[in-house]
């Protein structure tokens, strides 16, 4: 590792410690906002690990999240909480691998379409299964409080960032960047494109499932309509794109302002959320392609040019 890496690591650790101090404020509203931000940070960052380099837009976050929630919901009476988290990750990962095997061998459009309906399809299947067995929802009763959930999510965020950093430096990360630039070239230089894509999709699917399992105790009562909200997938995509997927820290920069903004919007215009979500999508495509990261890079590029001229 170079000195720059150590420096970055130091800064990140310091930020993490500062973030971990939030529950000490004892302010319920702040902590619940913190839980949302931590949750979206994990989801958006792990989404960008896959979709950033490959440009494959995954809309399956809500499906994996819901699966994780249900693993926790149906297992909490039989197994301890800490065992269920990895199980949720494992199941999420296996399903992601199956979805990836079916769609990622083909062009990107198939993948987008498939993930678009995945949450809704899983919801239908779970609802049907529950109707067959005759119960409507499940209770998740634990001793966990909001600060506990917040710390767990922060820990998971740190893990995802470390993993993302490691992948970025590995052969796999390099392969993915080539696939994103030109898939044909990637295939010709001997990269197993399907396998690389599936590997990363599994990472993001498993992470989303673990997040769902961690959030489950907060819901207390779980039913298909709350666990599989298609809106979640879109929010994650917007946040990640707003920040920019070119850098590891990009999604984080998008998550914080968007979560705050969304909080304000949904409390003052509860009926116009869909409209405003649509407008933010359009704003990002037309005004901020590349997100904040893209803007930052352009500004820096311009500054460099200017200093070179002088």
């Amino acid at each position: 590792m170079k000195t720059q890496d150590w420096k970055n690591l130091g800064w990140s650790a310091a930020l993490l410690v500062v973030a971990a101090l939030l529950p000490l404020t004892n302010d319920g509203y702040l902590i619940s906002l913190g839980v949302s931000i931590a949750m979206y940070t994990v989801l958006a960052t792990s989404w960008a690990l896959f979709s950033g380099p490959t440009h494959y837009i995954s809309l399956a976050t809500a499906a994996f999240f819901g699966i994780g929630t249900y693993v926790m919901g149906s297992g909490i009476e039989h197994l301890p909480y800490w065992v269920l988290l990895p199980i949720a990750g494992l199941i999420g990962g296996v399903i992601a691998a199956l979805v990836g095997l079916a769609t990622l061998r083909l062009s990107g459009v198939y993948f987008v379409i498939f993930t678009l309906g995945l949450a809704e399809m899983t919801r239908q299947a779970v609802t049907w299964y529950q109707n067959q067995t005759g119960h409507k929802g499940t209770y998740v009763l634990t001793e966990l409080t909001d600060p506990d959930i917040y710390w767990q999510l922060l820990g998971l965020a740190a893990l995802v960032f470390l993993l993302g950093w490691a992948i970025g430096r590995s052969k796999l990360g390099f392969a993915l960047r080539i696939i994103g630039d030109d898939e044909d070239v990637a295939r010709h230089v001997g990269i197993n494109t399907a396998l690389s894509k599936i590997a990363l999709f599994v990472v993001s699917g498993a992470t989303a499932a673990i997040v769902g399992a961690m959030i489950a105790p907060r819901y207390i009562y779980i039913e298909p309509a709350t666990a599989f909200t298609p809106m979640l997938s879109f929010q994650v995509v917007i946040m990640a794109l707003l920040g920019g997927t070119g850098r590891l820290w990009g999604p984080l920069v998008g998550v914080i302002p968007f979560t705050l903004l969304w909080e304000a919007i949904s409390s003052s215009f509860p009926n116009q959320t869909t409209l405003l979500l649509g407008l933010s999508f359009l704003a990002i495509v037309y005004l901020l392609p590349g997100g904040f990261v893209g803007l930052y890079d352009r500004l820096r590029g311009r500054a460099k040019k200017r200093s070179a001229m002088a």
Binding site: H55, I57, G108, V109, V112, F234, V237, L241, N271, Q272, T273, T274, L275, L276, L277, G278, L279, S280, F281, L282, I284, V285, P289
Partner: peptide, 25 residues
Amino acid sequence: RGMLEVDAILTTFGLSFVMVGLMIW
């Protein structure tokens, strides 16, 4: 074509949300 696909998907998504929002309104 790949770039167009990504942009088109995002734009038409936004558009679909805007239309749903307007119709609900």
